[in-house]
Amino acid sequence: MTTAAGPTAPALGPRVVIADDQELVRTGFRLILTARGIDVVGVAADGVEAVSEVKRLRPDVVLLDIRMPRMDGLEAARRILAEAPECRVIMLTTFDLDQYVYAALAAGASGFLLKDVTPEYLANAVRLVNTGDALLAPSITRRLVERCASASAARGEGAAPAPHPDLDALTPREREVLTLMGHGLSNSELARELTLSEATVKTHVARIFAKLTLRDRAQAVVLAYETGLVTPGSQP
């Protein structure tokens, strides 16, 4: 297709909706992603608009601010993933807000981004999540979840870990792999720790996801904490 300005290149990346109550953030992220071949199909200024836009546009990935008027990002994430479970949600946050991130991951978000992220990291993160992987490096996810879990326990908010009904479906090796994922080990680190090939590790991880109905690695880390396979401060 051509226009008066010349040929129009097709979008190369996933379809994205950006939801943030700050116009500068929406505009800046849109320019960054568009310049890198990622198709920003819509923007929203609050959680209610975000849910509506996702329902209307069916994007692949949603960038969702945690704090927004009318409906916060956490509730918006729950509603988006209930309506469009195939959609991937990335939460936008700052270190000051990371007490919300554990709940966001448990609700099905695939990870989080700080708002001062570099342009290249932003684009790469969107592409990574679109492939079905978790956004964060496993060790970063683990440290964040551990910090939030420790804070909740200190405030007396934590309940005793409850066994997941499907954990018994895991083989001893799969349970070992899940525990090490909870500690933040990547696939290559798992392979070295267990003296396995990376291909074998990937097979174990895929089976764990299928048996426990997990979307990605971020949810696996959350589950490892919730079931007591991993506890704050423990080492692999």
Rank of each mutant, 00 (worst) to 15 (best):
residue 1 M to R: 08
residue 4 A to W: 04
residue 7 P to C: 09
residue 9 A to F: 04
residue 11 A to Q: 09
residue 12 L to P: 12
residue 14 P to Q: 00
residue 15 R to I: 02
residue 19 A to Y: 01
residue 21 D to Q: 08
residue 32 I to V: 15
residue 32 I to H: 07
residue 33 L to V: 13
residue 37 G to R: 08
residue 39 D to C: 06
residue 41 V to C: 14
residue 43 V to M: 12
residue 47 G to Q: 05
residue 52 S to L: 14
residue 54 V to A: 08
residue 55 K to G: 14
residue 56 R to N: 10
residue 60 D to Y: 04
residue 66 I to T: 07
residue 66 I to G: 07
residue 67 R to D: 05
residue 69 P to W: 06
residue 69 P to Y: 05
residue 71 M to Y: 04
residue 72 D to Y: 06
residue 73 G to M: 09
residue 73 G to N: 08
residue 76 A to I: 01
residue 78 R to I: 09
residue 81 L to H: 00
residue 82 A to M: 08
residue 82 A to L: 10
residue 82 A to Q: 15
residue 82 A to N: 12
residue 83 E to Q: 13
residue 83 E to A: 15
residue 84 A to N: 13
residue 85 P to G: 04
residue 86 E to W: 08
residue 87 C to Y: 00
residue 88 R to E: 14
residue 89 V to W: 02
residue 90 I to K: 04
residue 91 M to D: 03
residue 92 L to I: 10
residue 93 T to C: 03
residue 99 Q to D: 11
residue 100 Y to R: 01
residue 102 Y to G: 02
residue 105 L to V: 01
residue 106 A to S: 06
residue 108 G to V: 07
residue 109 A to N: 03
residue 109 A to R: 08
residue 115 K to L: 11
residue 117 V to Q: 02
residue 117 V to D: 00
residue 118 T to M: 10
residue 118 T to I: 01
residue 118 T to E: 14
residue 123 A to S: 13
residue 125 A to K: 07
residue 128 L to N: 06
residue 129 V to K: 01
residue 130 N to M: 07
residue 133 D to P: 07
residue 135 L to D: 00
residue 135 L to P: 01
residue 140 I to V: 13
residue 140 I to Y: 01
residue 143 R to H: 11
residue 148 C to L: 00
residue 148 C to A: 15
residue 150 S to L: 12
residue 153 A to E: 12
residue 158 G to D: 11
residue 158 G to I: 13
residue 159 A to D: 12
residue 162 A to W: 00
residue 164 H to Q: 07
residue 167 L to S: 06
residue 169 A to Y: 02
residue 170 L to C: 09
residue 170 L to F: 06
residue 171 T to V: 08
residue 172 P to D: 01
residue 172 P to W: 01
residue 172 P to Q: 02
residue 173 R to S: 13
residue 174 E to Q: 15
residue 174 E to D: 12
residue 177 V to M: 13
residue 178 L to I: 03
residue 180 L to W: 01
residue 181 M to W: 00
residue 184 G to A: 03
residue 184 G to F: 02
residue 185 L to M: 11
residue 186 S to C: 09
residue 189 E to D: 09
residue 192 R to N: 09
residue 192 R to F: 03
residue 193 E to C: 11
residue 195 T to H: 14
residue 195 T to V: 14
residue 197 S to A: 14
residue 199 A to K: 09
residue 201 V to P: 03
residue 201 V to W: 00
residue 204 H to T: 12
residue 205 V to N: 12
residue 206 A to Q: 13
residue 207 R to W: 05
residue 208 I to F: 02
residue 210 A to N: 10
residue 212 L to R: 05
residue 217 R to M: 13
residue 217 R to Y: 07
residue 217 R to K: 10
residue 218 A to P: 10
residue 218 A to L: 13
residue 219 Q to T: 11
residue 220 A to D: 09
residue 220 A to M: 10
residue 222 V to N: 03
residue 223 L to F: 12
residue 227 T to Y: 09
residue 232 P to Q: 04
residue 235 Q to E: 15
residue 236 P to G: 15
